[in-house]
Write a protein that binds this DNA or RNA. Sequence first.
DNA 1: CAGGATCCGTTATGATACTG
DNA 2: CAGTATCATAACGGATCCTG
Lengths: 111, 111
Amino acid sequence: MGRMSEEDYVENCPISSVQKIVRGKWTMVIVFFLSQGTLRFGELSRKMPQVTQANLTKELRMLEEYRVIHREVYKEVPPKVEYSLTELGVKFLPVLKSLEIWAIEYEKMLK
Amino acid sequence: MGRMSEEDYVENCPISSVQKIVRGKWTMVIVFFLSQGTLRFGELSRKMPQVTQANLTKELRMLEEYRVIHREVYKEVPPKVEYSLTELGVKFLPVLKSLEIWAIEYEKMLK
DNA sequence: CAGGATCCGTTATGATACTG
DNA sequence: CAGTATCATAACGGATCCTG
């Protein structure tokens, strides 16, 4: 493959393929929490009280579909579902970190 | 400041303050293009044919408001407006880079 | 307990036409 | 050239109730 022209960037650039993942309102927060270890749905939900269960479910399903997190269902009563980062999810942590660094720069700038 | 508890993350974490910037559908693409140099509205618009002028304007205004880009208006006829990255915008480039790295990992994973 | 289903208002985005 | 204005639609986000 040759050099990518600027004109093709929007179509071909890798970022556009993952943008829909990053754009989820809670994806990064979810990844952050799961970076500290496996969590059950209820635990995650309690850490993010602003998010309704319906929306949390939606985001989790999206992250699962994109293979950022893993969903383990235990066939028990009462039901038990655990979420954890996949390998791909772990590899996302540097992105989270660099964004955090920028966020700090951003806050400094506001003063 | 002491350690941030997990429970406070969503409210206090720096990321939430910049999330709305990152979440813009075209913000990262705009920043990418401007990282290569100043561009006029029309030039940028031609590089992103998927985006309507109206929406491009909105995103540019948002990025300007958040001080990621600078908007220079020349009082001429015909009008001329140039966009460029601010210092803060330049500092965002590592984030873009780390996301790109992850995106490449992501594509590999799909095979 | 985990999350599915539904309703519904708010944003986001798009197409198109128009203007200083 | 660099937008605005208008209208229409789609996606998002929240609240509420339901179920294996």
